[in-house]
Design a protein around this nucleic acid. Structure first.
Lengths: 301, 301
DNA sequence: TAAATATTAGACTCACAGTCCAATTTATTC
DNA sequence: GAATAAATTGGACTGTGAGTCTAATATTTA
């Protein structure tokens, strides 16, 4: 995507924040970003498409920031999760995302509707997977329901708290409150055994695309965890852990992971007699190769 | 409101259900309902205003049906509440209300926005008051939060269950599920003492208008309850209860309560030596007078 | 430098909301 | 039942904004 196009998106975003999406005409965008109508329609086939490009851009950033919070942290730590949610809300606020979303929550444009639905589902899946990290596999059957309820509680509380407190809503407080509730709900619902939706349905909603960037990141994370376990009580455990941490950090939280560093780290892990489990290490290497492939494909666009 | 106007609303509603609100042009409505543009703008100042009239009509009906479910029932019975919620959802479905709402959840028309916001708040207040009936005064500080969370859980579960099951979503099941959750949540949140919003804030949101029809209905209900308590162990308790039940039914659940019946019932209650508490009876009579005033005002429109 | 490509400005079409008004129909009053 | 008042009609007219198209101009690439 070229610079000019980016610039248009940026300017349009400013206008959307100022006067709302619907109230901003294409002419406004042309004037404000200094391009001609012809160029605009060369970039985007409609205002809706511009909006989608904007959403994509913001969410890409959000996903990255959100993952950074997980670096070297315990994925099961619910406080990290709470921080991620807060980040989410902050992004929403600074970008006026909620309002923008609401303005187009139902439009006549099937593409846009599809896009938004997909966005919601991706959020839901992310929540579900984080809940798996946090509550563990044994709660799995209840975690899609829980993700749905969590979203409902959080969003409704946000809405009415914003109504009560205006711009200075205490996000932190609302997130903590909602998290506490959902913890109890998961407990309770697991005890009662009631379920509304089976998590498996998500694969129908979002065809898994098991080689997606996200999926690979998860797999790499788990492979690393496995290797760390393998090295337990090993004489060089500390060294291995350090190497593995570095590997993960460089891979998952850098825009352009440096291949040579990854390569040398991997050889370091392979060296040493009585080293790590060969199969597991091999698996990790293959995942990393796949990950590179995906990265390159994404970069091309 | 004249018949013709009603007819237009009805035809427009059909069009909205078929092709959606936004996709229906005013010209469509004119053609379909066989009136001229001039007349349309004589009735409504815009398509939005027509929509508001439609919402009002539907909700008036809903409120009535909803109240009928309470006739002679224990207000604290949570099953009645569940039935009311189911009714709510059924109305939503047959009228495609949810979709209609979503289409205009954020518009450029401040009037419409205001109207919708008010609708949401009225729903919330109703829920809160029902929760007061059900969970009792001692849980009061947590019941606004609970109403918000209940709405969030229910609406989100509905949304994703509809996605999973299409048109044949089992409303009953989802309502029961959500009700069970909220019961536990209220328990838990009361135990922990955590509160986000104080119920008092609702008076800022919806200036109370303490003589509104709804408010009076509640007061009458409570006054009747009080009188029933007074007559406890009284020799004629059964007769008094019957009279009071009749009074309430005729007053609150009939379109045009028959004054002479109310009058004679009241005298019957007043007669009998060692009768009911005079003050409480007097209070009820005044409430009934107020109620009549409001009814007449409403009728005029 | 020539050819390919991107960009421009603005005229044009189309659809729809909303205004206005003179002519006609329908309802009300005496 | 005639006179008056009120409601309704139909269509012309204005305005706005989306989206198309094109000939002219500028920029990039080979």
């Amino acid at each position: 995507m070229n610079d000019r196009k980016h610039h248009v998106i940026k300017m349009a975003h400013q206008l959307f924040i100022e006067k709302g999406f619907q109230a901003t005409s294409i002419q406004d965008i042309l004037d404000y970003s200094g391009i001609s109508k012809g160029t605009f329609y060369n970039y985007f086939s409609s205002k809706n498409e511009l909006l989608m490009a904007l959403f994509k851009k913001i969410y890409k950033q959000l996903e990255q920031d959100r993952n950074e919070l997980l670096v070297g942290q315990d994925h099961a730590d619910i406080n990290i999760f709470a921080q991620q949610m807060e980040l989410n809300l902050k992004t929403n606020r600074t970008n006026k995302l909620i309002t923008l979303f609401e303005e187009v929550i139902f439009s006549n444009d099937p593409d846009l509707n599809q896009f938004i639905k997909r966005g919601h589902l991706m959020m839901l899946r992310w929540l579900y997977q984080r809940f798996l990290d946090i509550f563990g596999e044994e709660k799995q059957p209840y975690l899609l329901d829980a993700a749905i309820m969590f979203l409902g509680i959080l969003q409704h509380q946000l809405k009415y708290n914003a109504l009560a407190h205006g711009g200075n809503t205490d996000y932190r407080r609302i997130v903590r409150y909602s998290v506490k509730r959902i913890v109890k709900i998961v407990e309770e619902v697991a005890a009662s055994g009631e379920q509304l939706l089976q998590p498996a349905i998500m694969e129908q909603w979002l065809p898994d695309n098991s080689n997606s960037r996200q999926a690979l990141q998860r797999k790499i994370h788990h492979a690393t965890l496995q290797l760390k376990k393998d090295s337990n009580h090993h004489v060089q455990q500390a060294k291995y852990n350090e190497l593995l941490d570095f590997l993960q950090d460089e891979l998952l939280h850098t825009k352009h992971p440096r291949k040579f560093l990854i390569g040398s780290t991997l050889s370091a892990l392979e060296s040493g007699k009585h080293g790590l489990n060969k199969d597991h290490l091999q698996q990790l290497k293959m995942l990393i190769a796949d990950y590179y492939k995906v990265l390159e494909e994404t970069q091309e666009q």
